[in-house]
Design a protein around this nucleic acid. Structure first.
Length: 827
DNA sequence: AGCACGCCGACT
DNA sequence: GTCGGCGTGCTC
C-alpha cells in the first residue's frame, strides 16, 4: 500500500499507538489499531507487531492517539498479548529518565528492564510445502539438502539451515525456495513463560471430608502392603503439609507410580496438577528478638526526623555497627502500613547470610531477585511484585520491577561499584536511578555503608542528603587493631618469605593456635598473571585482546580474563626456544598453595571468581568457613562483602600496593573502601580482631587514614585532589569509547569525532587516548573523557553534541561501522 | 538488533 | 558469470 493510497482509504479517526520495541532503535514506532482491537488496547500492554519484512516483536504500548502518520503507511497491530498492563506509568517514566540521563535508547532500557520471559521475538521458521515431491527435478544440491532435512524434522529455523549448509548467508536460497513454492515461511511468536506444573496427590471423597473413614480405606487395601505403606506415608506427610507431590509421596513410601496409580483406580487417591513457585520459600518464622542498641535507636529516630523534610539519607555506620537492624525496623514500619520496600544490594553480597537473616524475620514477605535466577523465576517475581509483594531484595535490575506502592528504598553498600552497569547499555547506576525512582513514588531512600562514596558523602555534606552516623560497633566491641607491615624492610633484611611477612605468618599461627580463623585478601585471581620466558621475557598473548594470558593451575592452561580465550601451555618459548618458563606475579591460587608450605596444618580455602562459579559454590565455601572446616580463607574482593563470621581473629591484606597503583582517579577511594571493608571482617561479635596490612610503600597517606579509621581525613584530602583535577563530585564525567577492528580507520574516525566535540566544548574534552588494554575481543579501543560542570543545561547540551557527533561521523564513508559507547558517570 | 540490498573480489 | 563477504541504510 502506497502512502497516497493509504491516505485516500484510511478510516476516519482511527486509533494509532506508539510502541517501544526491545531493540536498540532510537525511536518509537507508530502502528494502526484495527477496529476490532480498539477496545482491548491500553497503556502498558504488549502487542504483536511486524517490523520489517519478517520480524515479529512484542512491543509495548506507551501512547494511544489519533494523529495520522504523515510520512509512512502504518502497519497494523497483529494481536494483543496482555489483557492487563505489565508496566505502570511510573515504571515507564523511570525508563525514560534512564534513557535520557544515560544517553541510550528506550528500547535498550526496555531490554534491561523486562525479564526475557516477557520479551518475545520471532524466529523465522520454514516448513515443507505439502505439494513437495521428492522425485521433483530441478533442485540444486543445497535445495535438496534442505528438503531432505525438512522431511525428517518438519520445520527448520534460519540458524538450522545455516548449520546444515555450513554457510552464513541463507536468506537468498530460502527466498528462492519460497518463490519456487517448495517451502513456506512459518512465523510465530512463542510465549517463553510456562508455569512449572507438578503432579500432586490428594484423597478422594468421601475420605477428604470424612477422615474417620480412612480406616475403611486401610482395610480395603490390606491385601497390598505397598499400598498400605503409601497411604500411611500420605497420612504422615499430610500432618505437616497441605500439598503432597506424587514424586515426594513415592519416595517417602518407597513405591513407584504404578502403586499410586492402582490406588487412584481404587478411588482412594486422585492426581491433580498444581502450578508451583520456582522460588524457594522460607517457612520458618523466627523473629529477631534482641533489642536495639542505644546507637541504633538514635539512628532510627534521626532517620525518621530527617525524612520529614529530606527524601534521601546517608546512613554511615562503621562495619559491625548493626545497620541491618536499623533497616529491619524501617522495613517493618513500612510493611505494617501496607507499603512496598525495595532493598538493593550488590550482586555478591546478596548470596547468603543477609538474605537468610531477613527471611528469618519477614519469611515469604520477601522476594529475592538476583542474577542467577532463570527466566521463569524472574517472570514469577515480576508477577508477585505486580500483585503487591511487600519486600524485594535484589540486585540493580530489581529497580525495574512493577512496584505500585513503593515507599522505601534501601541501597546497602551504597559505595559498591557493581551498582553501575557498564556493558551493555543502559549504563545506569542503580543507586542514582533508585533516587529518581523514589522521587516518582514519593518514597524515601536510605543509602547505607561503612565507607561512603565521595559523591554521596559530598551530597550529605552539602545537605542534599541527610546524614546519620553510627560510629561504634554493636555490643561495644572495639574496632580492630590495624598493623601496617613494611614488606620492603623485611625484603631488604631477607626475612620476607615469598609473599608473607614474618609478622603476618606469626600472627596467623598464633591465631590458629587460639582456635581462631583468618581471612587473607588478595586482589587478583588465577595462579600467576603470566607465564614468562626466562631468557627473552616472551609471554603468550591473547589472540583477541592485547593482554598476556593468565596461568590457571586448576585447569592447567592459559586464559584471557577479558574474552575467555583459552590456550594450552607452551612447552618451550616459541620465540627463542628456551625451555625454562617462569611464573610471574601472584594471585589467590598461588597464595593458597604457598600458605600450605608455611602453615601445613591449616585448612585453607579459596574464594574467588573461579571457585564460586557453580550454582551453590559460593554458599558451600561460606558454610565450610562458618562450620570451621576452613581455618584460613584466601580470597578476592568477594571476601570483603556482606560476610559476618564470629571467629575471625586475623584479617590480612597481602598487598595494599596493588590497590593503590591503578591509574584511575578512583583508585585511592577504592583502596580505602576495600581495606576498610575487609578489616571489618575481623573480630566481630567475639572480641577485638587484628588486621595486618602488608605494603612496600607504607608512607601512602591512605594507609594512615585506614589505620586511624579516619574517614573524614581521607574524604577531605581526596576532595581537594578531585577539585584540583576537575573530577566528581565537582564535575560530571562522560566517557566515550570508540571501537573498531581496524586501528587506522578507528584513529581517523576518532579524530573527526573528537574534533567536533572539541569545537563545541573545548578543553573539557580529553583524548582520544589508547586505553590500558588497547584491544579487546578483536576490537581496537580509543577512549575520550568529557569533564562537565554540574549544570543541567550544559550536561543536556553535551549529550546532544555527542549524539550529533556520532551521527555525523557515522554518516562519513567507512566510519559507519565504528561503534560508539557513551558512559555517563563512569565508575 | 536483524535483514536486505548493493558493491566488490574470488572462484567454478 | 555467480557466490559469498562486507558495508550501509531502514524498519512504523
Amino acid at each position: 500500500l502506497s502512502l497516497e493510497q493509504y491516505h485516500k482509504i484510511k478510516p476516519a479517526n482511527s486509533h494509532y499507538v506508539s510502541i517501544v520495541l526491545p531493540i536498540a532503535v532510537p525511536k518509537l514506532y507508530t502502528y494502526i489499531v484495527p477496529e476490532e482491537l480498539v477496545e482491548s488496547i491500553q497503556f502498558g500492554i504488549r502487542v504483536e507487531v511486524q517490523l520489517g519484512r519478517s520480524k515479529l516483536y512484542a512491543g509495548l504500548i506507551i501512547d494511544i492517539h489519533h494523529q495520522v502518520p504523515e510520512d509512512h503507511t502504518p502497519k497494523p497491530i497483529l494481536s494483543i498479548i496482555d489483557q492487563h498492563p505489565i508496566v505502570y506509568p511510573e515504571q515507564f517514566k523511570l525508563w525514560q529518565w534512564i534513557a535520557h540521563y544515560y544517553s541510550c535508547s528506550i528500547g535498550e532500557v526496555m531490554n534491561a528492564a523486562l525479564p526475557s520471559g516477557l520479551k518475545l521475538s520471532s524466529e523465522t521458521k520454514v516448513i515443507l510445502s505439502p505439494m513437495y515431491d521428492p522425485n521433483l527435478q530441478g533442485l540444486d544440491d543445497k535445495e535438496f539438502m534442505i528438503c531432505e532435512a525438512l522431511s525428517i524434522q518438519n520445520e527448520l529455523s534460519t540458524s538450522d539451515i545455516q548449520k546444515i549448509l555450513n554457510q552464513k548467508t541463507v536468506y537468498p536460497l530460502m527466498q528462492r525456495m519460497i518463490n519456487k513454492k517448495i517451502i513456506y515461511l512459518k512465523e510465530e511468536l512463542k510465549e517463553k513463560y510456562t508455569p512449572k506444573i507438578v503432579v500432586c496427590v490428594r484423597l478422594q471423597e468421601p475420605y477428604i471430608s470424612n477422615p474417620e473413614l480412612l480406616q475403611e480405606a486401610f482395610d480395603k487395601l490390606s491385601r497390598s502392603t505397598r499400598q498400605v505403606e503409601a497411604l500411611m506415608a500420605y497420612v504422615q506427610l499430610s500432618r505437616t503439609q497441605k500439598v503432597i507431590r506424587r514424586a515426594e509421596l513415592g519416595k517417602k513410601a518407597n513405591v513407584d507410580s504404578s502403586v499410586l496409580k492402582a490406588m487412584v483406580k481404587k478411588e482412594i487417591f486422585e492426581f491433580y496438577d498444581k502450578e508451583i513457585s520456582r522460588i524457594g520459600v522460607y517457612e520458618d518464622d523466627l523473629k529477631d528478638t534482641f533489642d536495639l542498641s542505644a546507637q541504633q535507636e538514635t539512628a532510627l529516630t534521626e532517620l525518621r526526623t530527617h525524612f520529614q523534610d529530606k527524601n534521601v539519607a546517608l546512613l554511615h555506620g562503621v562495619t559491625g555497627s548493626g545497620k541491618t537492624r536499623v533497616y529491619i525496623e524501617l522495613i517493618q514500619e513500612a510493611i505494617q502500613k501496607g507499603e512496598q520496600v525495595l532493598y538493593l544490594l550488590p550482586e555478591i553480597a546478596l548470596t547468603g547470610q543477609i538474605v537468610a537473616r531477613l527471611q528469618k524475620i519477614f519469611g515469604n514477605d520477601i522476594a529475592v531477585f538476583h542474577s542467577r535466577l532463570n527466566n521463569h523465576e524472574r517472570v514469577e517475581i515480576w508477577k508477585k511484585v505486580f500483585s503487591g509483594q511487600s519486600i524485594v531484595m535484589g540486585v540493580r535490575s530489581s529497580l525495574f520491577l512493577p512496584f505500585k506502592n513503593l515507599k522505601l528504598i534501601i541501597v546497602d553498600e551504597e559505595h559498591d561499584t557493581s551498582f553501575k552497569q557498564f556493558d551493555p547499555a543502559p549504563r545506569y547506576n542503580a543507586r542514582d536511578s533508585a533516587i529518581y525512582l523514589a522521587h516518582l513514588h514519593q518514597a524515601k531512600v536510605v543509602l547505607g555503608t561503612a565507607t561512603p562514596s565521595i559523591e554521596t558523602y559530598y551530597n550529605a555534606q552539602q545537605k542534599k542528603y541527610a546524614l546519620v552516623e553510627m560510629k561504634e560497633r554493636f555490643g561495644g566491641i572495639q574496632m580492630p587493631e590495624i598493623i601496617i607491615v613494611d614488606a620492603k624492610d623485611e625484603w631488604k633484611k631477607r626475612k620476607l618469605q615469598s609473599h608473607f611477612t614474618t609478622v603476618l605468618l606469626d600472627e596467623l599461627s598464633a591465631a590458629l593456635e587460639r582456635g581462631e580463623q583468618a581471612i587473607l585478601f588478595q586482589n587478583r585471581r588465577g595462579y600467576a598473571p603470566t607465564l614468562n620466558c626466562k631468557n627473552c621475557g616472551w609471554s603468550k598473548q591473547c589472540k583477541n585482546c592485547d593482554v598476556s594470558l593468565t596461568f590457571h593451575k586448576f585447569s592447567h592452561n592459559l586464559r584471557c580474563h577479558y574474552c575467555g580465550y583459552q590456550s594450552q601451555l607452551p612447552t618451550a618459548c616459541p620465540s627463542c626456544g628456551e625451555r625454562d618458563l617462569n611464573l610471574k606475579g601472584f594471585g589467590t591460587e598461588k597464595i593458597e598453595d604457598e600458605l600450605k608450605i608455611y602453615l601445613p596444618d591449616a585448612n585453607i580455602g579459596r574464594m574467588d571468581f573461579d571457585t564460586v562459579k557453580g550454582k551453590n559454590a559460593h554458599a558451600t565455601i561460606i558454610n565450610a568457613f562458618e562450620e570451621k572446616r576452613i581455618d584460613i580463607l584466601v580470597g578476592t574482593q568477594m571476601v570483603t562483602k556482606g560476610l559476618d563470621f564470629d571467629n575471625v581473629g586475623i584479617v590480612g591484606v597481602l598487598s595494599a600496593d596493588h590497590l593503590l597503583q591503578f591509574p584511575d582517579f578512583r583508585s585511592t577511594e577504592r583502596a580505602f573502601q576495600l581495606i576498610t571493608q575487609v578489616s571489618g571482617r575481623a573480630g566481630r561479635k567475639f572480641k577485638r580482631g587484628k588486621v595486618i596490612i602488608q605494603s612496600f610503600n607504607t608512607t601512602h597517606p591512605v594507609l594512615k587514614e585506614v589505620l586511624n579509621n579516619n574517614f573524614s581525613g581521607f574524604f577531605h584530602r581526596e576532595l581537594e585532589e578531585r577539585l584540583d583535577f576537575n573530577y566528581p563530585p565537582f564535575n560530571r564525567l562522560i566517557k566515550i569509547v570508540l571501537k573498531h577492528k581496524k586501528p587506522e580507520l578507528l584513529n581517523h574516525g576518532a579524530k573527526l569525532f573528537s574534533q567536533i566535540l572539541k569545537d563545541r566544548m573545548g578543553k573539557r574534552v580529553i583524548g582520544p587516548a589508547v586505553p590500558g588494554i588497547p584491544r579487546v575481543r578483536g576490537q581496537y579501543l580509543l577512549v575520550m573523557m568529557i569533564k562537565l560542570e554540574k549544570n543541567p543545561k550544559k550536561i543536556k547540551t553535551a549529550k546532544e553534541i555527542i549524539l550529533k557527533a556520532t551521527q555525523f561521523m557515522k554518516a562519513q564513508k567507512g566510519f559507519s561501522t565504528i561503534r560508539v559507547n557513551v558512559d555517563v558517570d563512569p565508575q
